[in-house]
């Protein structure tokens, strides 16, 4: 049962995934969506040459804030887990 479920569910995910990926993987040669607007206005709005950094710290700066909080949380948790616990209680 366990073996069957493992192979069944992984096969389902693999097959549907491959199918979906095949229809997703078109080669786009032009911009569309957010990227064009972002790249065109980077210098004017942020004065940064590196567009990735401009995205990371300006237009998606709130995500980066969350990301650094993730790091902080993970480090605090590691410190809490590896601390010397109470003995014999």
């Amino acid at each position: 049962m366990k073996k069957f479920m493992t192979f069944f569910s992984l096969t389902v995910i693999l097959v549907t995934g491959l199918f979906v990926m095949k229809s997703m993987a078109v080669l786009p040669a032009t911009y569309d969506g957010v990227a064009k607007i972002l790249v065109d206005t980077t210098i004017e709005r942020t004065r940064a040459l590196n567009a990735v950094t401009a995205v990371v710290f300006d237009s998606r700066g709130y995500d980066t804030l969350g990301e650094s909080f993730v790091l902080f949380t993970a480090i605090s948790c590691s410190a809490a887990i590896l601390r010397k616990g109470l003995k014999g209680r």
Binding site: Y62, G66, V70, T73, C77, A80, I81, G85, K87
Partner: peptide
């Protein structure tokens, strides 16, 4: 994507608090 980031902080914090009584 921000939903994902926030729920990831939540998961980490929840794991850390679960393991808080590490004795």
């Amino acid at each position: 994507f921000n939903m994902y980031v926030m729920i990831e902080i939540m998961t980490f914090a929840a794991v850390g608090l679960t393991a808080f009584r590490n004795h």
